[in-house]
C-alpha cells in the first residue's frame, strides 16, 4: 500500500508531485469549491439568525433609546469613579 508516488528519495532529482493521491486534483478542486460556497451559505444564514436574536434582545431591553440611556449612565458612572 502506498498513497503517493514516492517510494525512495534516491531519485529526488526526477521526482514530480510528492503529495499523496496524485491524480485526484480535480476532485479536490471540486471539494474546495463546495467547501467555500457552503461556508458562505452557512454564514449568511447564521448572520440572519444572529440579527433576529439581536433585534429581539433590543426589544427585551426596552428599545434602542433605553439601551443608549443605560450606556450614557454607565459611562458617566465610570467617569465619576475615575475622577
Amino acid at each position: 500500500m502506498a498513497t503517493g508516488m514516492v517510494d525512495t528519495w534516491a531519485n529526488s532529482d526526477v521526482l514530480g508531485p510528492i503529495y499523496p493521491f496524485v491524480g485526484m486534483e480535480g476532485i479536490l478542486a471540486f471539494v474546495c469549491i463546495a467547501f467555500w460556497l457552503t461556508w458562505h451559505i452557512w454564514q449568511i444564514r447564521s448572520e440572519n439568525r444572529e440579527f433576529r436574536e439581536d433585534l429581539e434582545k433590543i426589544r427585551q431591553r426596552g428599545g434602542v433609546g433605553r439601551i443608549l440611556d443605560d450606556e450614557s449612565t454607565l459611562a458617566q458612572e465610570e467617569d465619576s469613579i475615575q475622577d
Binding site: 521526482l15 514530480g16 510528492i18 503529495y19 491524480g23 486534483e25
Partner: peptide
C-alpha cells in the same frame, strides 16, 4: 499547485 520537485510531470 502542490509540493513538487520539478521532475517529470504526471
Amino acid at each position: 499547485m502542490g509540493a513538487h520537485m520539478g521532475g517529470v510531470p504526471v
